[in-house]
Amino acid sequence: MTTVLVSIELTPSGDVRPGLADLVAHARSIGSPVGVVTVAPGDSASVTERLGAFGLAEVLVAESAAVGAADAEPRVRALVAAAAARNPTAVLIANTVRGRDVAARVAVRLDAGLLLDIVGLHAEGKRVVGEHSVFGGAYLTASTAGDRMTVATVREGSTGEQPSPVTASASALEIDDTTVPTAVITEATEHARRSERPELRTAERVVSGGRAVGSAEGFELVERLADALGAAVGASRAAVDAGYISQDHQVGQTGVSVSPELYIALGISGAIQHRAGMQTAKTIVAVNKDETAPIFEIADFGVVGDIFTVVPALIAEVEARR
């Protein structure tokens, strides 16, 4: 079995991003996954324990005092060292803002081929082939780096698979401390998030609000329906621009691309750039008071109505039928 390195992204407080499950699932489809993680000195044991829950049996852990202070570089160096030690066929990294920086630098340093935002991965003979969803899912393309090593950024939430837990064993990975110019992180704060609410990129259900929601307080209506359905909260760019909710909730062309089981659009017109981020959802529901709103062209179930009357009634229905 060939080795596939899986880069682990930790939040400032040391949490593992849930999208790791997708990286591990894609890695499995072409080889055996080996996790690579960088932690502050002394933190190896606690992180290894948690990685087993994501189905990673083997983890290479690099301890570095630069973790949390230097942007990207410690993770880059750990992956380059791990690639030298294990000669993997592919290195998988989450397609997050931070993950892309790591992938960009690793691909150049290893002279690898870089596949971007993959939603699928398979082997054809010795070649690794990545699949991409292009122009909001209007196309599915496949590409390969041929004989080169593959570095790929992976769309979180692209498999929907839940990992089966294993016991992870860790080996230490040495990385050198040579100084290259790097951005220094002087402050890092995690967004407060209701822990029981799923993360947008990996959620099976998403409830999004648009300009019609009208205010930051009004977004509570969107959140209440989301919570009743166990869904993540999304938004249109107009809602983000108006300051109703933070940018990392934006779905669409310049926001997150989601492909959940259920997507509910509340007071969203369905502009082409919004559709680009959600039209591959399995089931789409829209509530909009304008019967000509383009969102209805792609909705499996559309309600022409006012969100301020339909949504509270829907929350009551959902709760009553539990």
Partner: peptide, 26 residues
């Protein structure tokens, strides 16, 4: 370094049911 090996177009989505709220939409 990377070459495209295949391109497939996905069929566009179709509109489904649409109702006008008369109080029973929820």
């Amino acid at each position: 370094a990377v070459s495209v090996v295949s391109v497939a177009e996905r069929p566009p989505r179709q509109a489904g049911t649409r109702i006008i709220d008369d109080g029973s939409a929820a």
